[in-house]
Structure formats: structure tokens, C-alpha cells
Design a binder for these strands. Structure first.
Length: 154
DNA sequence: GCCAACGTTGGC
DNA sequence: GCCAACGTTGGC
């Protein structure tokens, strides 16, 4: 199957694309939304590409590209009582929350802002617009190419 | 299974 | 900081 495309959000105050550029690879922990989890656990494949989206930022924008670098693994933060993402209802025998490793690919010189996306007729059906609160979402190939074009990366 | 109350995300 | 959208929880 052809590689699929995704968009994954992070608040840059918490973890930015510059942090990923420094770390090279990171585990995308802390996702506590079932749809987002299902996409990571069931649908992502090693080698898929994902946009790194900076949410809650000025401006919020697609900041660059990363590659899915592992199959989904249980998120250890769910079992750590001291962690912000601790989930007392998750059973270690049957973990509730999963996430993948992502690998830095590149950072855009010209990030594509949410306003840019909303202003572009070809992107009006993007999940970023239609499902604003979903933090891991699929991107159609045509949308992927269009965002790259807006970023001047094609 | 419905739905009101509540909590969180994230744009503005 | 506000608040709309919407996901989750829990009472019934």
C-alpha cells in the first residue's frame, strides 16, 4: 500500500518542530483521544509521512514534515502516577493509550498558517478545518501536495 | 441508551 | 482570557 499522510498537532510551547529537529526522533505520547489513538494504533505504518502542526500558536501553522518511525506502542505515561497524562483506569495488561515514534524530516521555511489553509478552496475539506479538535488526523494526497505547494516546498 | 453536566482543545 | 465545539462521564 502507498504511504499515507497524516497531520499531528503539538503546542510548540510543549514540544515544537525545533525540539524534534534537535531530538531527531520522539515518541508522540500524551494523546488521550480515542479517534487519534485509533489512527496511530491501527492505521499508521512505518514510512508514512506526517505534517507537524503547531497549535495554539501565533499563528498556528503547519511547520514541517516528519516520518512515522515505529508501530504503535503503549504510552508509558498512562501508568505513571506523577505524570500529567496518568490514567488510573488504564490496565497495564490491556493498555488504553498508544502512540508511535516520529522522526524529523524537515522544517518549512514558510509555514502554512491555519488562515492560509482556510483561505484555500482546495483545502476546504481538510480535517484541520472540519474536525478542528482532532489532534491526529488523516491528510488526503491532494491536500498533502497542496500544502507543500503553499509552503513553497514542491 | 439517553442526555445533562463537565472538561478539554484550540482559535481568536 | 474567552468561549464554541465537542468528547467523556455518570445518573437514571
Amino acid at each position: 500500500m502507498a504511504p499515507q499522510y497524516w497531520l499531528m498537532k503539538s503546542e510548540p510551547v510543549k514540544y515544537s518542530i525545533d525540539a524534534l529537529a534537535r531530538d531527531k526522533v520522539t515518541f508522540w505520547d500524551g494523546v488521550r483521544n480515542y479517534k487519534a489513538r485509533n489512527l496511530m494504533r491501527d492505521d499508521m505504518k512505518v514510512g508514512d509521512q506526517a505534517f507537524f502542526y503547531h497549535s495554539n500558536h501565533k499563528p498556528s501553522a503547519v511547520a514541517g514534515i516528519m516520518t512515522i518511525a515505529s508501530a504503535a506502542k503503549p504510552d508509558p505515561t498512562q501508568f505513571d502516577v506523577d505524570n500529567h497524562y496518568y490514567d488510573e483506569k488504564s490496565d497495564p495488561e490491556k493498555p488504553r493509550w498508544w502512540a508511535v515514534d516520529v522522526k524529523f524530516s524537515r522544517k518549512f521555511d514558510n509555514p502554512v498558517s491555519l488562515a492560509d489553509v482556510k483561505a484555500d478552496a482546495a483545502l476546504s475539506d481538510m480535517a484541520l478545518v472540519k474536525m478542528a479538535r482532532l489532534s491526529v488526523q488523516p491528510v488526503r494526497p491532494a491536500e498533502w501536495r497542496r500544502v507543500l505547494k503553499l509552503a513553497g516546498e514542491d
